[in-house]
Simulated scan of single mutants.
Amino acid sequence: MQYATQVQPISYLKANAAAVLARLSEQREPLLITQNGQAKAVLQDVASYEETQETLALLKILALGHQDAAAGKLKPLAEVEARLRARRSAA
């Protein structure tokens, strides 16, 4: 994703906060905020933030699974199926 068109100085944010928030919700593209010509923050709408957090959580679960597999912490499929069937019948 290119952020060149979504860069604004902090003074723009201060003067146009409501319009910036509306644009973030509408376009769902992050906005890079600069201060003294340097990138200082990224603003994004809540829905996009939540999607990002969910994606990161899934990636973390995947990485943990790979670590377990590399460490040999695996169980045979038949054993897992038997445990799940036992739980289902107990419930």
Results as ranks from 00 to 15, higher is better:
residue 67 Q to F: 14
residue 42 V to I: 15
residue 78 A to C: 12
residue 41 A to P: 09
residue 57 A to C: 08
residue 58 L to I: 13
residue 52 T to F: 08
residue 45 D to L: 07
residue 62 L to V: 08
residue 45 D to R: 11
residue 65 G to E: 14
residue 46 V to C: 11
residue 55 T to S: 04
residue 67 Q to R: 14
residue 63 A to G: 08
residue 62 L to I: 05
residue 75 K to P: 10
residue 72 G to Y: 14
residue 73 K to G: 05
residue 79 E to Q: 04
residue 64 L to I: 00
residue 46 V to H: 14
residue 40 K to L: 10
residue 45 D to E: 11
residue 69 A to Q: 10
residue 45 D to N: 02
residue 50 E to G: 11
residue 66 H to A: 08
residue 45 D to V: 09
residue 42 V to M: 15
residue 61 I to M: 05
residue 46 V to F: 06
residue 63 A to D: 04
residue 80 V to F: 01
residue 65 G to N: 03
residue 44 Q to Y: 02
residue 43 L to M: 03
residue 55 T to K: 02
residue 76 P to H: 03
residue 64 L to S: 13
residue 81 E to V: 00
residue 49 Y to P: 15
residue 79 E to H: 00
residue 44 Q to V: 10
residue 47 A to P: 02
residue 59 L to E: 08
residue 51 E to L: 00
residue 56 L to E: 09
residue 59 L to K: 15
residue 72 G to A: 13
residue 54 E to N: 07
residue 78 A to S: 02
residue 59 L to W: 03
residue 41 A to S: 10
residue 74 L to M: 08
residue 41 A to K: 06
residue 63 A to I: 13
residue 64 L to M: 11
residue 67 Q to L: 07
residue 54 E to L: 15
residue 40 K to V: 11
residue 40 K to M: 03
residue 49 Y to E: 11
residue 70 A to C: 03
residue 55 T to P: 09
residue 50 E to M: 13
residue 42 V to K: 01
residue 66 H to K: 05
residue 49 Y to G: 04
residue 66 H to L: 00
residue 62 L to G: 11
residue 81 E to T: 06
residue 56 L to K: 04
residue 71 A to M: 00
residue 40 K to I: 12
residue 42 V to S: 01
residue 45 D to H: 06
residue 64 L to Y: 12
residue 66 H to P: 02
residue 73 K to V: 09
residue 49 Y to L: 01
residue 51 E to I: 13
residue 51 E to N: 03
residue 72 G to L: 10
residue 61 I to C: 14
residue 56 L to A: 04
residue 78 A to I: 03
residue 51 E to H: 15
residue 54 E to M: 00
residue 68 D to G: 03
residue 58 L to D: 09
residue 41 A to W: 06
residue 54 E to Y: 00
residue 77 L to N: 07
residue 76 P to N: 13
residue 56 L to R: 12
residue 40 K to Q: 08
residue 74 L to C: 07
residue 52 T to G: 03
residue 71 A to P: 09
residue 51 E to T: 02
residue 52 T to V: 00
residue 59 L to Q: 03
residue 51 E to A: 14
residue 71 A to N: 07
residue 61 I to E: 15
residue 52 T to N: 10
residue 62 L to D: 04
residue 48 S to K: 04
residue 58 L to E: 13
residue 77 L to Q: 05
residue 58 L to M: 07
residue 69 A to W: 03
residue 72 G to T: 15
residue 80 V to S: 13
residue 54 E to G: 01
residue 63 A to C: 08
